[in-house]
Design a binder for these strands. Sequence first.
DNA 1: GAGCCTCGAGTTCC
DNA 2: CTCGAGGCTC
Length: 708
Amino acid sequence: MASNASDKAVDELGESEARGELERLASAIAAADIAYHRDDAPEIADADYDALKRRNAAIEARFPHLKRADSPSERVGAAPAQGFGKVVHAVRMLSLGNAFSDEDVLEFDSRVRRYLNLDADAALTCTAEPKIDGLSLSLRYEGGRLVQAATRGDGTEGENVTANARTIGDIPASLRGAPQVLEVRGEVYMAHEDFAALNARQAESGGKTFANPRNAAAGSLRQLDAAITAARPLRFFAYGWGEISAPLADTQSGALKRLENLGFTVNPLTRTVARPDEMLAHYRRIEADRATLGYDIDGVVYKVDDLDLQRRLGFRSTTPRWAIAHKFPAEIATTRLEKIEIQVGRTGALSPVARLTPVTVGGVVVSNATLHNADYIAGRDSQGNPIREGRDLREGDWVTVYRAGDVIPKVRDVDLSRRPKGAQRYEFPTKCPRCGSDAVREEGEAVAYCTGNLICPAQAVEKLKHFVSRSAFDIEGLGAKQVEAFFDDGWIREPADIFTLSQAHGPGSDAPLEKREGWGPKSATNLFAAIDERRRIPLARLIFGLGIRHVGETSAALLARSYGSWDAFAAAMRAARDHDGPEWEALNAIDGVGKVMAGAVVDFFHEQTARAAVDRLLAHLDVQDAETPRTEGSPVAGKTVVFTGTLETMTRAEAKATAESLGAKVAGSVSGKTDILVAGPGAGSKLKKAEELGVAVMTEEEWRALIG
DNA sequence: GAGCCTCGAGTTCC
DNA sequence: CTCGAGGCTC
């Protein structure tokens, strides 16, 4: 039976057929894995391998209870192209906003109150707990059993480290009384004493030692051989959750209690605090205990306790509005500023970088630091106010450096008493160091730009790097390094060249990729396949990839959503050529698009060279129309809504977020394209204009009734 | 027109 | 992560 079953569509399979199929697939995939990984001699084509994996996943999705203990979908190292399989998070793993001072914490408190329309003296309870310096992990339990563990990755997609997570003592393999689906999120870390012992062992056995516990934890979790992870002393604190089939509690603190009862370890310094002064008091207590905790922490996290309020607050593009991380002050080190060099970005921006005598800051050796712009070097901000009390930076100076947010190295100050004799004030270049074109700094702007847009090789290569970057075309195997090498050899000079790479440099060509240093038949085939995969591209990624100034990831998605298809978008931009007319007005009416961005986009389409390059690119692409938001049964899908006057039961931001989630476009001003004006008390000119234009006007109450 | 909020662009090291 | 600047609100 099983042999016939393999030809059947998954939804036609009976249960016993499915069981047999899963068994067959498990052994076929395992055999392919061994051939690929251990013997480095693949027996089947990658596409066939992927098909096996997909079929396995599809059957498992339909018959979850038949999932085998040795399921290929969970096995570490199962995917051939990279060490770990990828996992798309059911609920995104976000990062947190940061507070660096008491004022920032007070501001967080008032921002939350403002958003929720709470009085200054109304209670607003938060949880406060140490921020562990480890790495985030998401644990998925189904029916009380741990089925998957994934790293954070880019927040949307992480790595499957299930086998490794199973070896961590603090992570229960099964739970009693948990919801059917429960994703527990927390931090994997290594305690100080375990770290010291591990390093001692490593040194003894001649293995590599780790710079700090964080790196040790990360290195240990990302072992392809779970047996190695098992020998590493990792621990886990639970602090939150992702997808859940039933709520854990009404409050953050209640949910943490529940997780504790289920068998997780929650940090013992977690408290609920009612007011900013209590938040700060708990911060100081934790800071005072920092050295005796036995593990690294880098701050304190506050979260609004009431989950209903959390839901109302929602998310900004990368962070929740209901939480913030209060960071401890950064460590500082002293070193020498050897040289100031200039880098050229994809927009032509000239950015000075400090080359430093390498120095250890916070467990990492730093040798470069950004200097932002000419004013920053001179000791001024963009308004001309002194920073570093007006002290400028010169080559040869002794400077203090720190890692902003414990990541990005920055120069804090300069020690004038140690300034070498004859050190010269730094002269910011007036020519692009790469192409020699004039560098121009517009009046009132902080950044100088290279004007050789079409001839500057630095700009061209940076634009290409942007094009292949993660948020744009995200071509696996074609990173910044490869782009640079291909550019230098003239293989890729513009985006379209990427899609003809396999013709120009395929196996039979004059200069085949597989003969290049560092490449072989396998990696070359993989790259061509990865490129082919991106011929079908979502509209938003295409727009972002074009690298139009002022159009980042968010705005690209906004434009894609607003126009739906490439043809509609391009036609409108061409029609708006003169910064005038209905298309121009429509573009400017999009909430979030102003004159500057609109001008940049329209001018991009008007520019012959850029347009020709885009046309060459489009010949290779199948652009997918933008998905409109969930609109099923939404009464306002596709409508353009404007809010005006005072809103009484929700804040403006809430109103906007809700409307957008229902597929409506929220605009800032009333125009012929407006479908609905929601007018509260105090509405003025917008109401009048809406009435003139015959736009439907409703009260807030009517609006709420409409959207349910 | 000022003040806030958010986004864009550039940056480091593993 | 930070800084500058664009866009929106008041």
